[in-house]
């Protein structure tokens, strides 16, 4: 599992990136940087603890509640610790037509966990998501920015093996 951050601050590179992002928006509209910064934060810590969100609020000079409200609205942000690889599989109609339910069933069985759970060794977290805009290439899941498409049981064996290394 990713440890809860004890020193909450961006790495120097990420801080520079954050400043660059904040500068994109017109004067007085810095709150627009909130979603991009939450992505940067999640990249660094894996999930968004309340300390991390407070830190982001500080960077943007907004109230912490404004960050909590936003972070909890969008499904990509993890508000609880997650495993090293978060597998987000699409459960929506078109992927199901392509056999998604069977393939995801196999994946769950293989990892021994259900949606919303993390393997005991902290390597994988499974998360059920809605349509990933890849319907013609389904079934599909994503792990961070990478899309894995046209999934079959065999593909899943390969991917899990690759990532378990």
């Amino acid at each position: 599992m990713t440890e809860a951050p004890n020193t909450v601050a961006f790495t120097p590179e990420r801080l520079a990136k954050a400043r660059e992002i904040i500068a994109r928006y017109p004067e007085g509209r810095q709150k627009s940087a909130l979603l991009p910064l939450l992505h940067v934060a999640q990249e660094q810590w894996g999930w968004l603890s309340s300390e991390v969100m407070d830190y982001v609020a500080g960077l943007l000079s907004i109230q912490p509640i404004e960050v909590y409200e936003v972070a909890s609205f969008y499904t990509m942000f993890h508000l609880e610790p997650v495993g090293k690889h978060v597998i987000e599989y699409c459960r929506t109609g078109p992927c199901c037509l392509m056999g998604g339910e069977d393939v995801y069933g196999y994946l769950k069985q293989k990892l021994g966990i259900g949606a919303g759970e993390t393997t005991p060794d902290g390597t994988f977290t499974l998360k059920e998501v809605e349509c990933l805009a890849a319907c013609g290439w389904g079934p599909v899941f994503q792990i961070r920015e990478k899309y894995y498409m046209n999934l079959t049981n065999e593909r899943i064996d390969e991917i899990v093996e690759e990532l378990s290394k």
Partner: peptide, 20 residues
């Protein structure tokens, strides 16, 4: 002068809360 509560989550899971 300072809001500490708000609407968290969305849809019918939305709730009024202070989060922490």
């Amino acid at each position: 002068n300072q809001r500490v509560h708000g609407v968290l989550n969305r849809g019918d899971a939305a709730e009024i809360s202070t989060y922490i």
